[in-house]
């Protein structure tokens, strides 16, 4: 299949009638087609539930984080944006917990490898994506702020595709 090269007729070479024909296509589009742009700041863009946005740390029923500080998310992260200090909570039912858990969202590339690697469904990327700020500190998500991000997802729901809706964990 070879692309054809047109020979312009005199009429087409005159150019003005062709302009009008082109304008006709544009006008037809204007009349026939509905609006395709979205008025962004007024109407936020609706993203699917599995959109990879801001992280959250999922809680146990008591309000404590579910994370057991196994550090698989650190290992899986290609951008090295997660840092963690593990400690013994002194609670016989929990072996280890993250004393500090920090995500540098300026380094994060939102690949979702952390939620895929997590063996206890403790971290997840929520569909929330509007967290711009003027200050650098606002992008450092500490453990408390990550637990606070649970408000972006309806309670008891999972948005990630790689995790399950059921839980098999001892809580």
């Amino acid at each position: 299949m070879i692309t054809q090269r047109p020979r312009l007729s005199l009429w087409q070479n005159l150019y003005l009638p062709e302009i009008l024909r082109g304008m006709w296509i544009t006008i037809r589009h204007m009349i026939r087609f509905k609006q395709v742009t979205c008025e962004y700041p007024e109407k936020p863009h609706a993203v699917p539930a599995n959109f990879r946005g801001l992280h959250r740390l999922i809680q146990r029923p008591g309000g404590k984080e579910r994370c057991v500080a196994c550090e698989l998310c650190l290992t899986a992260c290609p951008a090295n944006c997660i840092s963690m200090v593990a400690a013994d909570p002194g609670d016989p039912s929990v072996e280890k917990y993250p004393l500090r858990y920090e995500i540098d969202t300026l380094r994060c590339i939102y690949c979702g490898f952390c939620e895929e690697a997590c063996p206890c469904d403790a971290i997840e990327l929520t569909p929330h994506y509007e967290f711009a700020s003027h200050r650098r500190e606002d992008f450092m998500y500490t453990k408390d702020r990550l637990l606070d991000n649970n408000r972006f997802v309806p309670e008891g729901e999972r948005v990630s595709k790689v995790q399950t809706n059921e839980t098999y964990l001892r809580v």
């Binding site: 698989l72 895929e116 690697a117 063996p119």
Partner: peptide, 23 residues
């Protein structure tokens, strides 16, 4: 490929494979 999460929670072997593959 990572084993499905259901298996990771239930089966010892899947859990080991999960850790081995991520690490």
């Amino acid at each position: 490929i990572l084993p499905p999460k259901e298996k990771v929670y239930k089966e010892m072997e899947a859990m080991i494979f999960h850790f081995k593959l991520v690490i």
